[in-house]
Every structure is written in C-alpha cells, then in structure tokens.
C-alpha cells in the first residue's frame, strides 16, 4: 500500500519519494560516530578561508589535517547556502576542471571531515572548492597554504 501511495504522491507532486534501508542507516551512523571522528584540535598542515561566489552565502575555514588513517580536509565553523548536489573538491585552480572529488558535502553547516586518498600530491592542489556538480555551479573556494 505504501508503494502505491508513493506512486500517486510522485505522479501528483512530481517529486521523489525515498526511504533509507536499515543497512544504509547503520552505515551512515558508523561513519558519523564519535569513535571514528577525528580530534578537533588537530594542528592544521594547511589552512584557508572560504569565499563565496555570486549569490551564495558561505563562511568557514578549511584545514588539512593529519589523522592516523591519513590526510583529511576539515571544514571548520562552516556554513553554506543549500544546493542540490554539492561536492568537496581539492583543485589545482579556483575553478573546477583539474580537481580531485572527495565526495558529497555531508552537511550545509557544522564541522566535517573528508578523507584524502593515500598518495595524493597535496602540493598539486592548492585550492578547496564547494561545487554543485549537477548544475555545474561553483559555490565556494579557498586557497590553502
């Protein structure tokens, strides 16, 4: 019955109905659990301030920190305007093109962490970008030094 109800809601509302599975819920809880979260006072290897592009509101600081598991990008005191498909990139320039996609932005606000793949030459990526991939629109950039 729920599926049939969802069909009608979709057809009438032209919007998607979604529901996470228990397995996904558990996986997301594990990824965000305090046990695996890094220590917030980790010294930054590099840092930069986030700037917004036209029409976007953003604030916060980007840090590159060393964890036992490897390097991470930390977004600190962070908030950004909502977007449908925001990604976090390490980038060779202040615009996307030659970049390394670190994944979906976890949240529009709050401190958050993104793993940098092992073997990444960090000096080749002097920028961190917040980019809407779906509509190819840059939301924010930071030069990290």
């Amino acid at each position: 019955m729920k599926v049939i109800g969802c069909f009608f809601a979709v057809v009438l509302g032209l919007s998607a109905c979604t529901k996470e599975s228990d397995a996904l819920k558990a996986a997301l809880q594990t990824n965000n659990s305090p046990v695996t979260a890094p220590i917030p006072v980790q010294p930054a290897l590099k840092r930069g301030v986030l700037y917004s592009t036209s029409g976007i509101q953003v604030m916060g600081v980007v840090k590159i920190i060393q964890q036992a598991s490897g390097l991470q990008v930390q977004l600190d005191s962070f908030s950004v305007s909502a977007g449908p498909d925001l990604k976090v990139y390490l980038s060779q320039a202040a615009t996307p093109g030659n970049h390394l996609n670190l994944g979906n932005l976890q949240s529009n606000s709050g401190t958050q962490y993104y793993n940098i793949p092992a073997g990444t030459n960090l000096s080749a990526y002097p920028f961190v970008l917040i980019h809407c991939q779906q509509y190819n629109h840059l939301f924010s950039y930071a030069s990290i030094q």
Partner: peptide, 15 residues
Amino acid sequence: VAANIDGSYGSVTNL
C-alpha cells in the same frame, strides 16, 4: 512511466 526501486540502499519512487 513511474518506478519504485527497492534494494540494499532503501527505496526510491519517482517519475
């Protein structure tokens, strides 16, 4: 066509 997909990630219904 509208579709409902159900699997390990959960379920999605949309046009």
